[in-house]
C-alpha cells in the first residue's frame, strides 16, 4: 500500500513557511504581518509533526504543543502592542514607525498615489411633493 511519504509533508510545510515569509516582508498591515508569522509557525508545526510520525515517537508533537503555547502568549502580547501602536498613530501601517533611521535621513514616503476611490452611487432623489415628475415621452405607440 502506497502511503504519503515524509517528503511530501515537508514540501507543504516549506510552502507555508515561504508564503508566510513573503507576507511578513511585503504586507504593511501589522495584523496581516502577524498572521503571516503565525502561518510560518504552522509550516514548522507540520514539519515537526511529520518527523514525529515518521520517527515513530511523540517528541515532535510535544514540541509543537509548546510552540502552540508560546504562539498563544505571543499573540496576546502582540495584539496588546498593536493596540498601543494603533492608539498612538491611529493606523496599523508599519511604515509609520521609522524613527530608527539614520539621523538626517529623509523619511520614506509612498511615491505611488492611490487610485481615486470609486465614485459613490448617487442616491435616488424624490421630487418635491405635489409636483408631477416629468415623464419621458413615450416613444412606442401601440
Amino acid at each position: 500500500m502506497t502511503a504519503v511519504p515524509l517528503h511530501h509533508y515537508l514540501v507543504v510545510g516549506a510552502v507555508l513557511f515561504a508564503l508566510g515569509a513573503i507576507g511578513f516582508l511585503a504586507r504593511r498591515n501589522l495584523i496581516v504581518m502577524f498572521l503571516s508569522a503565525e502561518m510560518m509557525l504552522q509550516g514548522v508545526a507540520i514539519n515537526l509533526v511529520a518527523f514525529a510520525r515518521f520517527r515513530g515517537n511523540l517528541q515532535g508533537q510535544a514540541f509543537v504543543l509548546f510552540t502552540l503555547t508560546v504562539a498563544a502568549c505571543e499573540a496576546a502580547i502582540a495584539l496588546a502592542l498593536i493596540l498601543m501602536l494603533y492608539r498612538s498613530r491611529r493606523s496599523l501601517d508599519v511604515s509609520l514607525w521609522q524613527d530608527l533611521r539614520e539621523p538626517g535621513q529623509e523619511p520614506t514616503v509612498d511615491e505611488e498615489p492611490l487610485p481615486p476611490p470609486p465614485p459613490e452611487e448617487p442616491l435616488p432623489k424624490l421630487p418635491p411633493a405635489g409636483v408631477e415628475p416629468p415623464h419621458p415621452e413615450e416613444t412606442s405607440r401601440v
Binding site: 515569509a21 511578513f24 516582508l25 511585503a26 504593511r28 504581518m33 508599519v94 511604515s95 514607525w97 521609522q98 524613527d99 530608527l100 533611521r101 539614520e102 535621513q105 523619511p107 520614506t108
Partner: peptide
C-alpha cells in the same frame, strides 16, 4: 550605505532574508 538605514522594520527583515 546610509540610505539603507531607513528605519523601516520590513526593509531590515527583507535585507536579512
Amino acid at each position: 550605505f546610509r540610505p539603507m538605514q531607513n528605519g523601516l522594520v520590513q526593509f531590515y527583515a527583507l535585507a536579512m532574508a
